[in-house]
Design a protein around this nucleic acid. Structure first.
Lengths: 266, 266
DNA sequence: GAGGATAACTGGTCAGACCGGTCTGACATC
DNA sequence: GATGTCAGACCGGTCTGACCAGTTATCCTC
């Protein structure tokens, strides 16, 4: 029994969609006995699943399945991004590809509830004057738009670049003129979605992203690497990771019914 | 010292882009001593990093950094995909968004070397008659196209859906008429890339994907979940995971210089 | 029946041990 | 002097067994 095999088996048993919907895993001792391995071995397997966010352990209580949000999938991405140098130009090119589509589809498919969420996110954005809250509601707006497109694959694609995008926003929103130009664009996108106007939403998103583009000078080709992470550390302290901040922001702006069944309530 | 903190610290020290380029980590015992924790504790942290593919341990030798390929990032995605039901229709919609762009950009930016790789991948595809080899070269072609677009973010986005796409290909390529219709489309895309014709490449890709679309009947709205995984298990045996097959395929069709510096040679 | 003490869980952490593979350097050989 | 060999140090892989601090269920008492 290799770690791979045991991991594979656990995913099959407890994390596949047709697995019993129970949110609780057997105890470490039980699992170790079942697979004929020692507890430390089982713990290493579980630690791996935990680090990837698939399960959550609570001392004294047990190990629980975590319903994965598509937007949570950026988790493992950071290291890969760090090893390749990603520049703002590359990110904007990718966002342009993806977000014109999500905006358009959101206009076609968004439920009333999602539109309400989008609206209140914009209100929060307009009311926020500090950098991080502003960026939080910004990333939440774009993420909700991706969710409103009702395609988990597109949603995940956006999720996978969300921490990078958040970094970009921290950079853009520091600039006051950009904010003055960009805020109305959010409203314009929102209005088009509300009016069920896909082409209008696409067009408004294009304008919005071009405004963001124009913020950059020479640094549009400078690697985006750790700038954002350092900003976060400086403002929020060292115990927060970029991914956590983004993930928190996304969850905060989702209404419970959009969130679906999140097993934080074990 | 929590596991989070230690993980975070190790990533900063050894996996960030500006970290010393050494490929080898200190020994488990040394790390445990440095962080003032026990070896089992350190091992759990390392096991997590290993499961995510960031490091690779070799008995008797040590622990080594693994250069992450963008296309490797699909790793943690499967569970999230499994919990949300992804249908072929959703996947095709996302691919249409992404791959028209990568095809177009590849036509603009692909190096001669990449074009050569793309060509030889197509030769392999045409020569392959069994299902899995056929699908392998198919996914490799599309993945190389994404790489040829010279944008790591787009490359990663494609990587994140590559295992789903591979599943789709296993399904499509089982149909003989689809293959007959689809194969010439590959050549057409390739010709447009070679001719530096972005619009032609975009157009050819659109036709290609629509052919794939037309393969589906009612099952276009059936969850894509485990069909592919079961096909793989049936053909290649139970010790292979979908992700491994895809990852192997992608690496096989890349020329060394495109691969860049992969530290499999510790 | 209600309340509280207890026992039986849970995960968290550790020390210490043994195994087999790998590397290095000293020693012996040619 | 160059070469080859081999012991010892080091590496990860795995296990046993233990103790702690929380949580939960049980059972006994009032």
């Amino acid at each position: 029994m290799t770690q791979r095999e045991m991991t594979e088996s656990l995913i099959q048993r407890f994390l596949s969609p047709d697995a019993p919907g129970l949110a609780k895993l057997p105890s470490e001792r039980t699992l170790a006995a079942e697979y004929g391995v020692s507890r430390p071995f089982a713990r290493e397997v579980l630690a791996g699943l935990g680090q990837q966010g698939f399960i959550k352990t609570v001392p004294g209580r047990g190990t629980f399945i975590r319903k994965m949000e598509m937007s949570d999938s950026a988790r493992g991405m950071r290291v890969a991004y760090g090893q390749h140098a990603v520049t703002p130009r590359m990110l904007m090119e990718a966002r342009l590809t993806l977000e014109l589509q999500t905006a358009s589809l959101a206009a076609e498919r968004a439920t009333r509830e999602m539109i309400t969420s989008l609206g209140s996110t914009l209100d929060t954005f307009d009311a926020a004057f500090e950098l991080v809250p502003r960026a939080r509601s910004d990333i939440a707006f774009h993420s909700l738009l991706a969710k409103a497109a009702q395609n988990p694959v597109l949603e995940m694609m956006f999720g996978s670049i969300s921490s990078l995008t958040f970094g970009l926003m921290l950079r853009s929103l520091g600039d006051e003129t950009t904010r003055a130009l960009g805020a109305p664009m959010h409203r314009k996108i929102f209005a088009a979605v509300e009016a069920r106007d896909p082409e209008g939403a696409r067009e408004a998103m294009a304008q919005h992203l071009h405004v963001a583009d124009s913020t950059f000078g020479a640094d549009i080709d400078e690697p985006l690497n750790l700038v954002a992470a350092e900003t976060i550390k400086r403002i929020l302290g060292p115990s927060y990771s970029l991914e956590e901040v983004v993930s928190d922001a996304l969850h905060e702006f989702q209404t419970p019914s959009i969130q679906g069944f999140i097993h934080e309530d074990y």
